[in-house]
Write a protein that binds this DNA or RNA. Structure first.
Lengths: 225, 225
DNA sequence: CCCACTGGTTACAATGAGGTCACAATCGGT
DNA sequence: ACCGATTGTGACCTCATTGTAACCAGTGGG
């Protein structure tokens, strides 16, 4: 993880850089606005910490420029009681701020939180096979790049099971156990219903299923190519 | 709120203690390092004010010891012009400092700010994402540059939690624990109400939420883009 | 041809979760 | 102790989800 710190107060800059590097982060420093932007372009950091009050190009301008380049999280440093600076910074797209003076512990906590959120935003790893991709977190399927379709809990589970064996037939009894637990074992009606409902959501023509096909004897398969 | 004050100058100690108790804080006193630590363990204060120059165990050592015990905010008192002391204090994890002499008014302002900040820090969440920016100190939200909206304690906490996972669904149970502690665990009604009240504050049309959306099954998410 | 079997379809009941309202309890500041 | 703001609690409505039953069509074997 690489962090860019920009501050014209060299003591503070050193302190911040020290704390961060002690915590295992790679730190690049800049002491004015233009320098910060140059560093940003050269080093492509994962996070930027900006002092608002810098001679020449202010933190605001740097923040705006960085926002224009991508979605790297930005934390602003502000002197106590500069309320309006704060508001402006947040409006410019800063993600967090710290009021000076602050403890290294606070700094680290906020940095960690910010990085965590940023990585969480990108993660969103869908489970996919062929033209079917499942978003487990948001309970969505997307078919061949179409609109996301909302799924219920059971529908999601069923699709997940079929997707894991994409293209191959899965036995009905196995599905019953996997989706409902041992409870519905033997109750074909439950599965019948669920398949029916799911087809109505994901098939263009539910009467002639292209995706969720019946696989005799007694099973279903997901056709994904 | 309980505050531990440690200073070997008994006049100053008395003055500080008096000012704080006048302001409604509960004050416990100590006049040397070991005494301060003993008091700290016995009283579990919410904030510690430490003189750096104390005979025997110095303020630095006490600060280190307190830091090792938890995350109680520490304010250091220092004589004018002891800049290097200051840097060292901040490195040891002190959260703020005051240069002697100081007025009771200044003291109170800083103490208040510190306590407020400390409570905000515990959540360790960033404060802005997309068009939603939180002002933790003043309990305000601002939506897309609009007027600041006043929030209650719980509303702020909820928003903070959602903001930390901006754009992603957050499970109801997790929210319950984060906002109320383990107490309300399982009590969906609390969350239901809080969401309802918050929506009435921040949504243009609370019946069709654009920001604070329900994420079935059993969760909410903050849409920020 | 009849019948048992399987899967699809329709209809409806049961359940549970969220939204809303009203009001009680509690908190915080004067 | 008092007052208003905040928070907690219960009741009720609505709707989505899920479970259950009944009926239909196709199939294959006796």
């Amino acid at each position: 993880m690489k962090i860019l710190v920009a501050d014209d107060d060299l003591d503070l800059l050193g302190l911040v850089a020290y704390s961060l590097s002690q915590a295992g982060y790679l730190v690049v420093k800049a002491s004015d606005g233009p320098g910060a932007l140059a560093m940003f372009d050269a080093e492509a950091p994962n996070l930027v910490i900006l002092d608002i009050n810098m001679p020449g190009t202010s933190g605001f301008e740097v923040c705006t420029a960085i926002r224009a380049r991508g979605d790297v999280p930005v934390m602003m440093l502000t002197a106590r009681g500069e309320e309006q600076d704060l508001v402006r910074a947040l409006e410019l797209g800063a993600d967090d701020y710290l009021t000076k003076p602050f403890s290294p512990k606070t700094l680290l906590a906020r940095v960690k939180a910010l990085l965590r959120r940023a990585s969480a935003d990108r993660a969103q790893a869908p489970v996919a096979a062929g033209r079917v991709s499942l978003d487990l977190e948001n309970h969505h399927v997307r078919i061949a790049g179409g609109e996301p379709i909302a799924l219920t809990k059971l529908e999601l589970r069923l699709l997940q099971m079929l997707l894991a064996q994409a293209g191959r037939a899965v036995n009905s009894d196995r599905l019953l156990v996997q989706v409902w637990g041992h409870r519905g074992s033997g109750d074909r009606q439950l599965l019948k219903q669920l398949v029916h409902r799911l087809r109505h959501k994901i098939e263009a023509n539910p009467a002639v299923p292209q995706l969720l096909q019946t696989a005799p004897p007694s099973g279903y398969k997901l056709v994904v190519d």
